[in-house]
Design a protein around this nucleic acid. Sequence first.
RNA 1: GGAGAGGUGGCCGAGUGGUCGAAGGCGCACGCCUGGAAAGCGUGUAUCCGUCACAAGCGGAUCAAGGGUUCGAAUCCCUUUCUCUCCGCCA
Length: 423
Amino acid sequence: MIDIQQIRDHSDEVIKRLRVRNMDAAELVNSLKILDETKRQLQKKLDDTLAEANALAKQIGVLFKAGKGADAESLKEKSAMLKKLAKELQEQLDDTNKNFQEFIVRLPNLPHPSVPAGKSDADNEVVQEAGKVKKADEGALSHWDLAKKYDIIDFERGTKITGAGFPVYKGLGARIQRALITFFLDEALIAGYTEYQPPLLVNEDSAFGTGQLPDKDGQMYHVPSDNLYLIPTSEVPITNLFRDTILQEDELPVKCTAYSVCFRREAGSYGKDVRGLNRLHQFDKVEIVQVTKPELSYKALDEMVAHVSVLLKKLELPYRITRLCGGDLGFAAALTYDMEVWSAAQGRWLEVSSISNFEAYQSNRLRLRYKTSEGKNRLAHTLNGSALALPRILAALLENNQCEEGIYIPKALQAYTGFRYIQ
RNA sequence: GGAGAGGUGGCCGAGUGGUCGAAGGCGCACGCCUGGAAAGCGUGUAUCCGUCACAAGCGGAUCAAGGGUUCGAAUCCCUUUCUCUCCGCCA
C-alpha cells in the first residue's frame, strides 16, 4: 500500500499520478487525510490518558507499600475513570483505524513517470522488438492441432479428469515441459538467483501481503476447510518469505527463483483467447524475485528484463517488450514490462512474462525493511517477473517451429530435452 | 486424530501480580589496551505509533495472538494459534 506520508505531504501529486491509471482519487485521498488526522488526534488523547493512568498506578503502588492503603482509595476511583475513558478512546481509534485501512488498501501504486497514459493493452508502448516475426505458411497448424498431431498434450482427457484448462502433457510433451523448467532454473542460477521450492498453498496473511487479497479474491482457488489459497504464482510464497523482516543492508539485493505450479480461476474468461494453451487454470512457471534498495530497483528491473530477453533469444523465439500503460498496469506495480512471443499460427503476440517493480508498495504491506548503515529502517523495494511461464512458450515453440521433420527444438533446449525434434 | 509440555529481545535463558522493555550469558558494534590480533576491560545493542525537523528529548504500545480479572499483568483466567514429546495414521 501507499505510504501515508506521501498523502500527508504530496496529496496533489498522488492524485495527479493516479490519473494515469484513469482513476480519480481525489475523494479517496481527501477521506484518507481526514481519517489520518482523526487517527492522530485520538492517538494523542489515548496516549495522554494512559500516561496519566500509568502514573496513578505507580502512585497507588507506592502508597500500598508504605501501608497507606486507605489513601489509595480515592486514587483508585480516579483510575477507574481514566480506564473507562481510555477504553472509549481505544474503541474510537480502532474504528478509525479500520476505516483508514479499508480506504488505503483501495489506492493502487503510483505509476512510474514513464508509464504511458492509456486504457487497455492496446495502448501499451512497444519498447523493443527482436527476432524475425514469421508469417505462417499456408496450412500452418495451431498449437492445439499440433499437440494432437504429435500426441503430446491431451486436452480432452484433462477436461474429463478435472475440467477445462487442465491439460495433460504426455510423452515428449511432458519431457519438453520438464526440460524447459530445468533450463529456466539453470539460467536463473547462473544469473545469481537462489532456488526455492515454496508451498503451493498459502494462508490469508500471505495472500494479503502480496496484494492478491482483498483485490483479486475471486482469482484464486480457495480451500475453505483450512482457509488456504492455491498460489496463482510463486511470487506469493516467495515474496512472503520476507514478510515482517528487517534485512541487513549488505544482504541486498536478495535474488530468488522458484519453479512452481500456478493455479488461476480465470473467472469470466472465454473465447478464442482461452483455446489450447493460451489461458489455463493450472500451469507451470519459473519466477524470479528481487528485493533491493530503493535507489537500485530500476536497475534491477532492467536487469530482469535483460535476463528474460536472453531466455527468449536462446529459445529462438521472436519477441517484443511492451511498457504497460496506466490502464493495464497491475494494482501494486509502479512499472511493468510485458514480454510477448509471436505465435505464428494464431498470428498474434502472447504474453509470457510480466516484469514489475513494485517499489515500496508491497514492502509497506509486508513490513519488509532493511537497516541502513546509519541504523535506520527503510522499506525495501520488491520486484518480480516470470522467467518464464511455460504454456505460451510451448505454444509458440510448436507454432513457430513446425517444419517437415516435425517440431524443431531450439539448440539451447536440446541439451535438456535430449531430442532435436518432436516427431 | 488422542495425551502431555511449552511459546520471553538476533540467539540462549531468568523472571508467578507492582518501579520489567524485561536479570544473566552469547552474538554484534564502538572504545580502551596491542606493533597487529586474541584475551581482558568499558560502553552500547528491539520494533511500531504520537509529538517533532523521518534529530534529541518526552509520551504510548509490544514478553505467540485476541479477550478478561486488577488501581497495576510477561506473571492470574478464557479463547485461538504455533512448536515440541509420546501414541495413532501415513507418502
